[in-house]
Simulated scan of single mutants.
Amino acid sequence: MAIPNEKERYTYADYLKWDEGERLELIDGKVFNMTPALSKRHQQVLRELSTAFSIFLREKKCEVFFAPFDVRLMGENKKNEDINDVVQPDLSIVCDQEKLDDKGCNGAPDMIIEVLSPSSVKMDRWIKFRLYEKAGVKEYWLVDPMNDSIEVHLLNNGIFEFHGVFTKEDTISVHIFPDLKLDLHQILRTQT
């Protein structure tokens, strides 16, 4: 079923009826089309991050998921018709297994990583930044593959605090996993 035009606001119940072939997000009841095919560089960086987290989390209770993976923010204890925010972050790390179901994550992941593309900068840096902050995501990374950098924001008393920008020369600590340190030269390496 195509997205109806007569409504301005939608819910997760509406979202479930739409074509599965389209990558859509729902923020405050408004529909956002996801970018078409992502760049090779975007995919390479996403693969390296996913691999690093997957290996680290093998023996932990947390899991890493990559898009497309529906995250129903602020959806705990709500009916589908009352959920207005459904996103597909590039990477989601979920430690509370109670939030996971066959449809994805119902609630805020512990950590979200978005890999920036030219068409997603405003969405990831502003709209999703505020949404993830409001939802209670503990750690939010913005990865810029064109500038080989990762910007880190940590939730403190309900507000994201800027923790720094890290580049290929750095090793970055993952705050929700104090014993995980990532060599950014490996994550951000240029591949042919």
Rank of each mutant, 00 (worst) to 15 (best):
V45Q: 09
C62T: 09
F177I: 11
D14Q: 06
Q97P: 01
F177A: 11
K181S: 11
P109G: 07
E139V: 01
H163F: 11
M74L: 15
C105H: 00
I112V: 15
K181A: 13
D110R: 14
D102V: 09
S149K: 11
L38Y: 10
K181R: 14
L184V: 10
T190C: 06
C95K: 02
F177G: 00
L142S: 00
F56V: 00
I113D: 06
K60D: 06
E63S: 15
L131W: 02
I27D: 03
R189Q: 14
K122Y: 11
S92G: 08
I159M: 11
I187P: 01
L116E: 04
L154C: 10
N147P: 01
R72S: 09
I27R: 01
H153M: 01
V64Y: 02
E6Q: 11
E161H: 09
H42M: 08
S120K: 02
N77E: 15
L49A: 03
N147C: 01
M34S: 07
Y10E: 04
Q44T: 08
P36E: 10
K99H: 02
E59V: 05
E48L: 04
L49E: 04
S120Q: 08
R130L: 13
K7T: 01
G107R: 02
Q191N: 04
K103C: 05
N156D: 14
